[in-house]
Design a protein around this nucleic acid. Structure first.
Lengths: 377, 377
DNA sequence: TTGAAAGCGATACCAG
DNA sequence: CTGGTATCGCTTTCAA
């Protein structure tokens, strides 16, 4: 156990050459089945762990990873991609090539992008899918073909995907409910908007919200969720109708990024001041709403960290052949007026991001930063 | 630019050998000053970046890092150390030896531990120091001797330390104030307890709290902070006295882990129910206080992530010779009744932590987990 | 003070 | 199917 087991040790113990051992361990063609079995057995008994330094030194080719995400309507997906890039750069001594394939709109071009990635013979895929069922067979195919697929933000259940990184949706809903309960301190009705109940993540946020209210704030009750299908006019219209039916509504929890149309509907109905609004995520248009107090708090889903974790888990699998986990849940951050500035990038002159060396990010106002703020100190 | 510049390229360009180039680049003794200058110059013009894979392959010796922290009175420091260990393990292909030196009590043995680390000829030190001024000269000495010192949780200003990882204290105080303001919605007086105003981090929390109240909740005012000097009986006594003088106190923000004595004082004074209490961090004894509602919310300082970031930054410096940042500030997490379970480790049977492979952590109830919850999915 | 050369452990190719 | 071997870039002796 003192010195690390090498390919040569296995070869020597079996009286064969390292070449054969190598081929056996990597399922390369042209190895006698029995030899292969013996190699695998010996590798296990000796506790062989490949020396990654040697591996990366001798094999010059780097990993090619496709990142299939939504084109940035808000900054969310830009942040996810930035997180992936950061982490890719931080992998010292490896050449990681990221290929970004983006879809212009939800549900448009997801299949094409996936096919393109497969054709490009990437080593792994990080993917956001709004309609996982449409990709199910493709993800299956990729996984069977030893191309790991990492889901980010939304899961693709029953597809054989390697893992998923997302915000803990139940905790998000619970936190929103807890805040509502403490903020309101009275009887009242609450509304929740979401994209579609069939999306697991959204259903879970609603469920976390509802259950927490029931447990701790029985004076508050939730209306059935309002589905906006990620269409802003639909969000506006449905909110307006809702506020007509319930002009005494106490608060709204918006679980998606479509908060602006809801806020507008409330303002147009003259009810903005009496409503306690909790939103999701952070983007330029939301900033003034938080500053003005129209939005009491927003639950930030840490897109940058989601991207970073997605890359890390995928990379660890690719490097070690093991997956540290099938499901990574992150705690959301709570942003209010007081700590809002922490989450916004500093004025120009300072630098933000994990790596400073390449100065990739342009500092600009009202763009959310996350978690790690760096400064020359 | 297409192929990476190697030691050999520099040697060839200068008509010397790789051995000399290597010695020149590493400040090894026995190199002509002019040769060295020429090598350094050429390295810069060619844009030489060492191939880390080759480096780790040929040099067998691993990094030795001393982790000097407080022995776990609560779980905080255990979590910090766990974070460091996790990240150390995740550095593939390098042998990192962590040497843990712990002090039994605040301010006891910090100097000795530091000296011991220096004598052990470590490559870097991660340190928590409660009285940085006492270590100032030693940290200076280490830094001059090319041994980087990373501060975690509290900074050591003007010491030449490499960097510091901590929670953004101003944002913590601001968040606490924002919550107080929204929870209370009335006129009132608030108290803040901290360890010592001379500790920058504590002063900043108070300042963030005070400024946020002034800006957004002018009906609330803060009393001068109560210093407990990290002594629990002192915290209890001073709280008791405070509550005698201000029986109409509206809320208390406890910026340290010493929340239990304050809660006890409030209970003993019969004022627990009328007080809105916001605490800091999460540890077993605090859990029932949150569940019962005695504590409205706690601001979790993510010790595990602090440890992870501390190791990452230090390691990056050691590996690349560059420091990505001098100051890493993390956003705290907000824990309330609803999302409390997310932050507590799952029941036995499930696994928590970043690496599953080695199963280092024993699952147990009421021990805070953080950020990443993994499950077989 | 400098040069030459032997590894480190895995990969990949060419012979057999 | 299998063995042998050059190679990756750097570190580290040993000579000169």
């Amino acid at each position: 156990m003192k010195t690390n087991v090498t390919l040569f040790d296995i070869a020597e113990a079996l009286g064969i050459s390292t070449g054969t051992v190598h081929r056996a361990l990597h399922n390369h063609p042209g190895v006698n089945a029995t030899t292969k079995a013996r190699v695998l057995q010996m590798a296990k008994t000796l506790g062989y762990r490949p020396n990654l330094a040697a591996r990366f030194l001798s094999s010059k080719r780097g990993l090619k990873i496709s990142v299939n995400t939504l084109e940035g309507t808000t900054s969310f997906w830009d942040e996810v991609r930035a997180g992936i890039s950061e982490e890719a750069k931080s992998v010292l001594m490896e050449n990681v090539d990221l290929e970004f394939r983006t879809y212009p709109r939800l549900g448009e071009g997801e299949e094409d992008a996936f096919e393109a990635a497969l054709e490009a013979k990437v080593d792994g895929i990080i993917i956001f899918s709004s309609q996982p069922e449409k990709l199910r067979s493709r993800i299956r195919r990729a996984s069977r073909g030893r191309i790991p697929v990492m889901c980010v933000t939304t899961d693709a259940p029953n597809t054989g995907r390697l893992a998923v990184v997302s915000i803990d949706t139940f905790a998000s809903g619970a936190l929103a409910a807890d805040l509502m309960g403490r903020f309101l301190q009275r009887k009242g009705r609450l509304a929740v908007t979401l994209s579609d109940l069939r999306i697991t993540e959204h259903a879970e946020k609603f469920s976390g919200f509802e259950k927490t209210l029931q447990s701790f704030y029985p004076d508050l009750c939730v209306l059935p969720p309002l589905e906006d299908h990620d269409i802003e006019p639909e969000a506006y219209e449905k909110s307006r109708e809702l506020l007509e039916v319930y002009p005494d509504l106490a608060g709204i929890y918006i679980t998606t990024e479509a908060s602006i149309p809801v806020i507008n509907a409330a303002r147009d109905a003259g009810l903005l001041n009496q409503l306690t609004i909790i939103t999701t995520d952070l983007f330029p248009a939301l900033v003034p709403q938080i500053r003005s107090g129209a939005v009491s708090a927003t639950i930030y889903q840490r897109p940058r960290t989601q991207g970073r974790m997605a890359f890390r888990v995928l990379h660890e699998f690719l490097a070690e052949g093991e997956c540290p986990s099938y499901q990574v849940s992150l705690a959301p951050h709570l942003v209010m007026r007081g700590n809002l500035d922490f989450f916004l990038e500093r004025q120009s002159g300072e630098t933000t991001g994990t790596r400073r060396r390449n100065g990739t990010r342009e500092p600009s106002a009202n763009v959310p930063a996350e978690d790690v703020i760096l400064s020359r100190g």
